[in-house]
Write a protein that binds this DNA or RNA. Structure first.
Lengths: 152, 152
DNA sequence: TCCATAAACATGTATATACATCTAAGTATC
DNA sequence: GATACTTAGATGTATATACATGTTTATGGA
């Protein structure tokens, strides 16, 4: 049977059902919306999330911070740098000299305050667009999926 | 009221409900699982997805490829480079000289063939871990969410 | 005390992501 | 047919992501 690359091939699994591909696709599109909403205050979605977690929980060990974010420790090390450069966070030492303690600075907290209404706006758009039922289903299935990926 | 950064603050929205933060967190963890599963054949999750789409649909215009992936055009330009360097894809010109036509090479198709069973394995782990109902709910809510982010 | 091990974080490297902007090529209007 | 406009991609820059590995500090025996 001859087959050239210009023709589709039905022998491959439909990528339509790939959990990872669908997650990554949705995340790209949703992140663009949140990034756009937060652009007026100079924050990216990931940065807003990090500041919001710090605002909510107060000073945290860097390793605990990484766990909460579900972020590799080395990724967090890199992601902290832009926030540090802009003086939105502070890194202190613990008595245990290996440990870094991360906290918001005053400018960081002030920026978070200005960003929260922008977050509410874009979050509300998704809440409205999806409806309460689907939003709840989204958060619930994402949590279940994360738990499958990282049991315990 | 005095408040220092070491203490949590309940005045901030619970990041637990942020669609973007939850998507990004789940995507990080799930991508690590798919990346690990595909590592034996030297593919990342995103690369596998791109090859699988090309395998399924055959030669595509670069802009259509970006649309299907929900990926910014400039991101796709960059993401094609590692695949080109490894000779897994080919880029041809259209009659319209602005257009690039992307297709799998023979090595690319062969690699995809070896990768599919690895994908099936990890995909099956999520299918089993979530159950059919939640997997269906995941794909369905991700699709709805993507549509809210990018109407039309 | 000294050494092995472990824990916490940093660094080298590669990929993934997208906005702002640029270039090349096609289309339309006159 | 020359000029404006539009479309398709590429490039400059910055952030996001994580594996393999390195460094520093703490801990637990021998």
């Amino acid at each position: 049977m001859f087959m050239d690359d210009k023709q589709p091939d039905n022998s491959y699994p439909d990528i339509q059902v790939c959990a990872c591909a669908n997650l990554r696709r949705a995340t790209r599109l949703v992140t663009q919306a949140y990034d756009a909403a937060l652009r007026p205050v100079g924050l990216r979605a990931t940065q807003f999330t990090m500041l919001a977690v710090l605002g909510k929980r107060g000073q945290m060990r860097q390793s605990d911070f990484a766990d909460v974010l579900g972020m590799d420790g080395t990724t967090l090390t890199r992601n902290l740098q832009p926030l540090l450069k802009k003086d939105w966070i502070r890194i202190d030492r613990d008595e245990d000299q290996r440990v870094r303690l991360i906290s918001l600075t005053e400018p960081g907290r002030a920026l978070l305050d200005t960003a929260v209404p922008l977050w509410r706006e874009v979050q509300g758009q998704f809440q409205t667009g999806l409806g309460k039922t689907q939003m709840t289903a989204l958060l619930s299935t994402l949590s279940a999926t994360a738990n499958v990926a990282q049991p315990g």
